[in-house]
Structure formats: C-alpha cells, structure tokens
C-alpha cells in the first residue's frame, strides 16, 4: 500500500513533467493548428546538449543547464523558420507530418552522435533522500520537479496574465485571424512560441534524465503519455492538458509498480480509448456542435 502511495506521488511528479510538455504542445496547437510530434525529440536533444556541455566542455551542471536552455530556444526559433513557416498553404496535416520528419531527423542525429554509448547516467540536480511523510519517503527529485513545475507554471501564468506579450499569445491561441487583424506580429509570436516550447522540453528532459537515464529515444513513451494527457484534457484546454497529464502520470506509475511496464502502457491506452468513446470532448474541452 505504501509502495503504491509513493508510486502515486512520484506519478504526480511525472505527470507534471508530461503536463509541461503538453502545455507547450497545446499552446502550439491552439495558435497554429499543428500538433508538434517533435516535442519529445527536441526535449531529448536539449538534454544531450546539457550532458555534452558537461562532459565535452567540462562545464559545471548549472552552467550546462543555462547553455542547454539558450541552445534550445535558438533551436526552437530555427525550427520555426526552416521547417514550419515555409509554404503554409500545404495545410496542417502536411505541417504536422513535418514535425514527425523533424523528429526522425533529430533522432537520427542523436543516434549518430551519442547513440553508441547510450544510455548515459545524468547527474541529479538535488541529492539527498527526500522528505519522510508518515511511513513513506517523497524523493528529493519529485520535490524538485514539483517546485520547478510550480515555478514555471506560475511564471507562465503571470506572463499570460500581465504582460503584453502574454496577452498577444492568448489572443493568437484563441483567434489567430483576429490577432492578425489587430496588428499583432504573428510571425514573431509564433517563433517565440516555438522557442518557449523547446525550452520547456529541455527543462523536462533535464528533470527527467537523472531517473530515466539519457538515450536518444528516452522521450518516445513520454510523448505518447503526454498526447494522451492532452486528449484526456480536451485538446485545446491548457489547464486540461495539465490535469490530463497528471492523471496519466498517476495511473501509469501506479499500474507499473503494481503490475508491470506492459500493463502500465495497456492501462493508459485503455484509458485513452474509454475517454475517446465516452467523453469525446475530453475532461475540460467543449463539445462540438455539428453532429455527423
């Protein structure tokens, strides 16, 4: 019982990580109509940049993290201008498949450069055993994840709420056409959205790597669970993505500990299908008005 409870607690932490990626994906989806399937590999690449800065350049962990975050912001902008922006007339499905192609490319590059020695041990940002609560221990890493997630979500919330840039993002996400009409700089905002997405991904990868090790395909299953969380939450709802992701994190962690890895995957998939069948608009989404 204690084991399951602690699995549930670390599930919340993992769910928050999914939620941060999901947040980035939903933000892009709402403002551009594109589901970013490269989010996972972008995150992993950020993790590798951090790792390489430490091992190849000999930087301390904190400096490596700064390098990785800056590098991923630049990469996010580059991806937007090189891969996403050209030929918007090709349609959303074409652009969605471009993100898959990008994902393949980044994966191939990582395999080429780092594949041979993977998986790598990644240093934990915090040491120590964590906090004793009743008869089980909340690991230090989980506490860190919760703290970072809270800090990031708080910052984003304040940004969206109080800054002009944040308001512009919300306008773009709600009505891209109206945002254009009001003279908001759509290109710059989209580029910034990609930068933020990539940075969020890197943060997640750095938080995740100490427990899951670092390998080019680390994020594959995480991305799936994230997408499941997004569908659960209702596709276009930012709080929904967070809620859905935490549910997926807890459910998967508990079933993996109680049963097996396979069972965890199957149970989350079953959860996805059940929600799709019974509540197609997701937990916090709005139902469609046209029926077919």
């Amino acid at each position: 019982m204690g084991l399951l409870l602690s699995a549930g607690i670390s599930g919340i932490a993992v769910g928050l990580l999914y939620g941060m990626i999901g947040f980035a994906i939903v933000m892009l989806y709402k403002s551009t109509g594109v589901a970013n399937f490269a989010q996972g590999t972008l995150a992993t690449l950020g993790g590798f940049v951090c790792w390489a800065s430490m091992t190849d350049l000999g930087l301390p962990l904190w400096a490596a993290i700064v390098v990785a975050l800056v590098a991923s912001a630049v990469l996010g902008v580059a991806v937007y201008f090189v891969v996403i922006r050209p030929r918007p007339s090709a349609g959303n499905l074409n652009i969605t498949v471009r993100t898959l192609g990008l994902s393949l490319l980044l994966l191939a590059v990582m395999e080429w450069r780092w594949g041979a020695g993977a998986p790598y041990r990644f240093p934990a940002i915090v040491e120590g055993t964590g906090v004793q609560v009743a008869d089980f221990v909340v690991p230090a890493q989980s506490l860190l994840i919760a703290a970072v997630a809270a800090a990031i979500m708080g910052t984003l919330w304040a940004l969206f709420r109080y800054s002009n840039v944040g308001l512009s993002f919300r306008a773009m996400a709600e009505q891209p056409d109206t945002a254009r009409l009001l003279g908001l700089p759509a290109t710059r905002l989209s580029a910034a959205t990609w930068a933020i997405s990539a940075v969020l991904g890197t943060v997640v990868a750095i938080l995740l790597a100490p427990s899951s090790f670092l390998a080019p395909s680390t994020m594959e299953s995480y991305l799936l669970f994230t997408f499941t969380g997004i569908v659960l939450g209702g596709l276009t709802s930012l709080p929904g993505a967070l809620l859905g992701s935490v549910i997926v994190g807890v459910v998967s962690n508990v079933t993996i500990v109680a049963l097996s890895l396979e069972a965890g995957v199957l149970v989350v998939f079953a959860l996805l299908l059940v929600v799709m069948l019974l509540r197609p608009q997701g937990l916090l989404g709005r139902p469609e008005s046209v029926r077919l």
């Binding site: 399937f37 969605t96 299953s221 997004i230 097996s260 989350v268 996805l272 069948l277 197609p280």
Partner: peptide, 26 residues
C-alpha cells in the same frame, strides 16, 4: 469520431502498444 489530433494520438499509441505487447514476456 475524431479529427486529426485524436486519430493521430490513438493510432500512434496503438503502434506503441503493439510493439510493447510483442516484446513483452506475456
């Protein structure tokens, strides 16, 4: 019942489930 996002997610996940089941010990 879904448009692109839902179908993409479910089929992608299904692919992962199939590989997991085929790889697993069960």
């Amino acid at each position: 019942r879904y448009r692109i996002f839902g179908i993409a997610t479910a089929t992608l996940f299904f692919g992962y489930v199939v590989v997991t089941v085929l790889t697993g010990d069960t």
